[in-house]
């Protein structure tokens, strides 16, 4: 199903709230997205960076996976 702008805003809020005590992580996520937007990094590059950044936060990883195109996803350890 197609995600909307509201879903993106909601996800960004979720990340911001999670790292309220460590805003550098939220800012790094914004930086990764900006690099993708400027095409400095591609989809696999984004996946690589985000999987490291959100290591230990499987719910954030699953939420991020929803934005990835078919055939791409970050594996979450069970």
């Amino acid at each position: 199903q197609k995600l909307k702008v509201e879903d993106a805003l909601s996800y960004l809020d979720q990340v911001k709230i999670r790292f309220a005590n460590d805003p550098g992580i939220y800012n790094k996520f914004l930086d990764i997205m900006k690099e993708f937007k400027s095409q400095s990094i591609d989809t696999p590059g984004v996946i690589n960076r985000v999987s490291q950044l959100f290591h230990g936060h499987p719910d954030l990883v699953l939420g991020f996976n929803a934005f990835l195109p078919p055939g791409y996803r970050i594996e979450v350890p069970k």
Partner: peptide, 21 residues
């Protein structure tokens, strides 16, 4: 582009960042 929803998220993130996070 092959990842329209990721582009959408990136656009929203860029706007959010430009507004101060």
């Amino acid at each position: 582009l092959p990842a329209p929803q990721l582009v959408m998220l990136a656009n929203v993130a860029a706007v959010t960042a430009s507004e101060g996070g």
